[in-house]
Design a protein around this nucleic acid. Sequence first.
DNA 1: ATCCAGGAGTCCG
DNA 2: CGGACTCATGGA
Length: 320
Amino acid sequence: MFRQAEALTKAKPTNSVSPVPTRTYHQKTLSVPNEFSFHECLKFLARSEKEKMHVIKAERVRKLVKFDDGPVLFELSHPTKTAIQICFLNQPVSRAAIAAVSEYVNDWFDLETDLAPFYQLTETDQLLKNLTTRYYGLRLIKIPDLFEALCWAILGQQINVAFAYTLKQRFVENFGESFTFDGEIYWLFPTPEVVAELQLADLLRLQFNRQKAEYIIGLARVMRNGEVSKQDLLELNSIVAAREALMKIRGVGPWTASYVLMRCLGFRSAFPIEDIGLHNALQRQLNWTRKPTIAEIKSLSAGWNGWQAYATFYLYRSLL
DNA sequence: ATCCAGGAGTCCG
DNA sequence: CGGACTCATGGA
């Protein structure tokens, strides 16, 4: 395949415009599972204009990730029903980077999960059936980076999601690394190493409250120190043990732990039952005039064993 | 204006 | 262990 070098440019305060590339990029095709809708996945990813961790245009999504070799920018498209195409926009790209991105996309879109049992389950659950019919093929979109997932959950504690996105945007644009390509800026989430060195005031001026500022800097420090890592949590091979380990982190309570088990660590029985968004979605689906109680949700979800995370995610989707 | 938001830590009995 | 209180600011 024809390749030509195309460098990512570290973003400078002044916008530099790159020429529009007319190159042939290295590509790789991933086969997709049954019960898959690229469109539905992008719909979820596009839920906020303030989301700076990817860029969506015309049924394509671009994302910058960083591996040991350095940053890699890729674009996903869906040329046929049975495949996702990964296009590597910065070249040359190493064999290792291609493998790493393939693995990343597999995780990000949760392509390994066979949804057939979940859809089967919804046949006897009218509430879920409505959602799986409406959003057929939606995958549980992950937040593969543990630090990002935990920060996002902490940011979302006790404030509305719109404002959480505002705080996330400020956090990313102030402390994340960015690169430009083809005139567009792509961001990496701030790293624990950088955030661990911040002072409270650095976050307070972004309108974080004192709690969020303390929680996020404290989290960054324990992760930088290697006291918490995604790999270690996964190697526990136990949702109960992983949940306990997460809840030892200051600022990580039951909701945050469950949220991260669901959005990052891939536990399909994770269930953030305290989640206000979940409550609101259930209220709407049930057409009730009040929110369901925890006891009522436990009753409603009695048949969701093993699929609580997917049920929750489809309920989130219903709020968009 | 008023209430609420994809909670968590602390204190108190 | 369970309940009340506090944090704090934008959105609707």
